[in-house]
């Protein structure tokens, strides 16, 4: 217990980094993934093909390899990212590829007749998405996506591979000084759980909010 009290202040900066990385990754991947996902479903053949190849490649590569590819592979191409942004870019890319699939699945599960009905009442393409497809698709998109968000929080521990001090790395820093791992790992588990449990509670609220059909 003394160890936990002693260690806590050293973990705050790392905890903040973990939250920051997770938030940026989740926000960016949602925007990028949703845009690409719509492209995958409704785009012309070249766009569909490009998104399909990108998504399959990115999802087929371990995040670890992706992180090192971004960090070491981009500087020769003239793009030199500091470790924080390199890690964020790699995690975002990975998460965006997953979001693409959630979006494709969610939109794909909406019956074709909905689109046709939208057309029949004279809605243009973007209005059909906005008023007809998305409100229905979002309900099917939310559960897997929130699951993916908690995954992103846990996956953010990988940024320490580039020397970024996140929660996990901050824990290891204290262990590296005290040589007493167990209390620190318990504290780490509790902190990660606190973040993820609040996220999944929030997700249940969100799901309930979107569970009804608006007339």
């Amino acid at each position: 217990m003394d160890q936990i009290v002693y260690a806590f202040p050293f973990l705050l900066q790392g905890l903040w980094t973990t939250i920051l990385v997770s938030a940026i990754v989740v926000a960016l991947s949602l925007v990028i993934g949703a845009a690409l996902g719509v492209g995958l479903v409704y785009g012309p053949l070249p766009v569909r093909l490009a998104v399909r190849i990108l998504s399959d490649c990115v999802r087929g590569i371990p995040i670890l390899v992706l992180i090192f590819m971004v960090y070491y592979g981009l500087p020769p191409l003239g793009l030199r990212l500091d470790p924080f942004w390199a890690a964020v870019a790699a995690l975002t890319l990975f998460k965006a590829a997953q979001v693409v699939e959630y979006v494709r699945g969610a939109i794909g599960s909406i019956p074709r007749g909905q689109m046709e009905a939208g057309k029949a009442i004279g809605l243009i393409f973007s209005d059909r998405l906005r008023f007809v497809i998305f409100p229905q698709a979002v309900r099917r998109f939310l559960p897997p996506w929130i699951n993916g968000v908690t995954d992103a929080v846990k996956g953010s521990a990988l940024v320490s591979l580039l020397g970024v001090v996140d929660l996990m790395h901050a824990i290891n820093q204290v262990i590296g000084r005290t040589y007493e791992p167990l209390p620190l790992y318990l504290l780490g588990a509790a902190l990660y759980f606190a973040i993820n449990y609040s996220l999944s509670s929030f997700s249940r609220v969100l799901e309930r909010r979107y569970a009804f059909v608006r007339e």
């Binding site: 940026i24 925007v31 845009a35 793009l79 030199r80 990212l81 942004w85 870019a89």
Partner: peptide
């Protein structure tokens, strides 16, 4: 969508 995508990417990748 493509413009939004490019902007989001650029924001993350400008710490040269």
């Amino acid at each position: 969508s493509a413009t939004g995508l490019a902007l989001a990417g650029a924001a993350g990748l400008t710490t040269l």
